[in-house]
Computed example of a mutant assay.
Amino acid sequence: QGPVLLQQLALLPDELPPYGSAAYLHLLIENCKLAMADREAWYGDAAEVPLDDLLSAAYNAERRTLAGPRASHELRPGSPGGRTPRLAAHARVVATDEPGFSPMGAGEPTVAKSPTSPVPGEPEVSADGGTRGDTCHLDVVDRWGNMISATPSGGWLQSNPVVPELGFPLGTRLQMTWLEEGLPNSLTPGRRPRTTLTPSLALRDGVPVMAFGTPGGDQQDQWQLHFFLAVALRAKVRGGLDLQGAVDAPNWHNDSFPGSFYPRGMRPGSVTVESRTDPEVVEELRRRGHDVTVGDAWSEGRLCAVARDPDTGVLSAAANPRGQQGYAVGR
C-alpha cells in the first residue's frame, strides 16, 4: 500500500496549518480517508492499478476539495482517469462491539496482546527470554550512503510451517484478498495480494537521505506520514527537531476504511490519539465530528529511522520507545 503514503503527501495543500494543531490533525486524517478509499477501490495485482492518475497533481487537487471542515464518515473512492470505482460488497461493513472484533483484525494489533490472547501481537520479549510477535521493521545505512528499509512480515515462525526444501515459512498475506470476483484485489491465480507493508526511503535531489518505516498493519502509512512531515517541516518537537523527537511525538490513527485483516470492518469517523495529545486539540477534533478515543500515552507508532547527510556524511538513527521494541545502534 506504499502509494497511500505518496497520495497523502500529494493531497496536502501548499500551506499547512500549524504542526500539531487540531486543524493540522484534521487535515491529515481526512486526507488519509481519501487515500485509503482509493486503496480499497484500485489497489491489487488482479487488475491494472492507475498509479499515474492516482498520484497526479490534477487528480489530487480535485480530491483535496472533499476534505471539508467536518469529519467525513463515508468511504469515498475517486475516479482516476474517469474510471468507475468498484468496492467489494463487504467493504462498508461497520465494526461492532462484539467480543474479539477489531477493525484491525487478528493480524497486526495496535498494541501488544496479553500472553493469554490467541492473537500473536507485536514483537515482545518477556523477562524469561521468551518471544512472541509478528511484523518487525529495520533500517540500515552505511558510511557510503547505502540504505536498506525492510518490514518482514506474513511468514511467522511461531505459527507457519517451514518448507524444508526452501528454509522459510509459508506466507499469510492471501488473507487480504477478496473472494468476490472482478476486483483489483480479488483472489486470482498467479497474482499477489495487496499488503500493508510500506518500508520507505526518502531522497533529496535523487540521493537517498533517510530510511524509515514501522510495523502496524493499516496504521503504517498513517504513522509514517506524521513522522515524515515532522522531519520535513522541521517541526519543533521536544524543543527542536531530531529524528528521535519526530518518532516520539504523539501519534494517532483512524479506522474509517475497511481493515486489511479479518473481519475487515471499519469504524467511520474514528480517531485514536495518545493521551499526550493536547486536550484542547482532542476537544476541537470532537467538535469537528471525529469520534475520538484517547489511548495510552505511548501507544501509537512503532517507527524507526536512519539518515545520512550527503553534505557532511553524518549518520543518525532513532528507534521507537513504545513497548521497548526497538533500538538505535551505530559503530
Rank of each mutant, 00 (worst) to 15 (best):
G2C: 04
P3R: 11
P3L: 11
P13N: 06
D14R: 06
P18A: 09
L27E: 12
N31C: 10
C32S: 15
L34Y: 04
A35K: 01
A37G: 05
A41D: 02
W42T: 00
W42Y: 05
D45Q: 03
E48F: 12
D52A: 06
D53I: 00
A57N: 10
Y59Q: 12
E62K: 11
E62A: 09
R64H: 06
P69A: 10
S72W: 06
H73V: 00
R83P: 13
T84H: 04
A89L: 00
V94M: 06
S102N: 02
P103N: 08
M104E: 13
G105F: 15
E108D: 03
V111H: 05
K113E: 11
P115N: 07
T116F: 13
V125N: 13
G129T: 07
T131Y: 12
T131H: 12
G133K: 00
T135K: 05
L138E: 11
V141W: 12
R143G: 00
G145D: 09
G145Y: 00
S149L: 11
A150M: 14
G155A: 14
S159Y: 03
E165N: 02
G167V: 14
G171S: 10
T172P: 09
T177A: 15
T177I: 07
W178I: 00
E181R: 12
L187C: 11
G190R: 04
P193Q: 10
L201Y: 07
L203R: 00
P208R: 01
T214E: 10
P215Y: 14
D218A: 11
D221Y: 05
F228E: 03
A232K: 02
A232C: 08
A235T: 02
K236C: 10
L241D: 01
G245S: 01
P250M: 08
G259E: 02
S260G: 09
S260F: 04
F261L: 08
S270Q: 11
V271T: 01
V273D: 03
V273H: 10
E280L: 05
V282E: 04
V282S: 01
R286W: 07
R287H: 12
H290F: 06
T293V: 13
S299H: 06
C304Q: 13
C304P: 01
N320L: 07
R322H: 01
Q324G: 10
